[in-house]
Amino acid sequence: MTIPTNSRTNPTRQSHRSVYPFFVLITLAFFLTGTPVVQGRVFRMAFICSGSITDGGWNQDGRDAAVKVAKALHAKLSVLEHVTPIRATSIMRDFCRRHYGLIIGHGYEFLVPATQVARMTTHTRFAISGADKVEPGVTTMNFDLTQPSYELGALAAMISRTGKIGFIGGEAIPSVEACYKGFKAGARAVNPKIRVAQAYTSWDQVGLSKTQAQAFIQQGIDVIYQNVDAASQGVFEAVKSANRRHPGHPVYVFGCNGNQNNNPTCSRYTLASAVIRLDRAFMHVAILAKAGKLKAGVINETMANHVCIVVLNPKLLGRVITPAMEHRLVVIRKHLLAAK
């Protein structure tokens, strides 16, 4: 390793003095510079997420939805990606100071920062997606994929020939675990003997999720439900190669969060996707926030208000997903909605 060693040649006091004025300057600047004035009456909203806005999944869908909402409401939108919970607090404080009307924190990890910052402001509203807890001053959007997952589980049980299906999640967090629970329940409802495997890998390590999917396929699992966002590419690739190797034993996969039915890798083996229509959910909170009517509390975004839905892959309709299956799914969906 090369380390620049030059300043170490003369460890005398003298040499360090030349940087001291710099610190004095900083201190002076701190007291001499003024407080900025926030001008303009335009509605400002911010969207922050913890991953990459080009991940082709949860974060990118969120950003796209936020952009769509901002355009519709003529709002100024600020987008920040790769926001760690630590950075989130100071970022939210800064947005509050600059009179942002709505801050959308796209992920459960922004709930605590939002709760803390909410204490010091009255004019900024916080909407946190993917969280289910009630915190003062914060609106949480609880995207409940349990029902769509239930439906997918039922479909998987109908399709599976081996009686083994699997679930891969990016992280064992409540919203992801809810998917697994719904998936399992749905599958059991159709085939009580079915075996449902689960595994948690990572949101962004494609290789990891691919290895996991391959392991599933080797165990005889032939329908995989994945909720791993950017890492879904790995699952798709594993499914694609499995199908190429053994064309007689098709392996199918489900998309999640966004509509992944048209993914370029293996759209012919993607049965359906559990889709969160973020634009719908965001539009709802943004309109309320702009009107100053957004209340703190949990908004349950479910199948009932058409935010969390199942989109079947039209390419497979009639071939793999037979009309009989489709009909049975409709019945199940009706039952689900009625139960609510």
Partner: peptide, 13 residues
């Protein structure tokens, strides 16, 4: 943790 985030997740930067 004590100064900025006031809670902790594994994503710390």
């Amino acid at each position: 943790i004590l100064g900025v985030a006031h809670f902790m997740t594994a994503k710390i930067g």
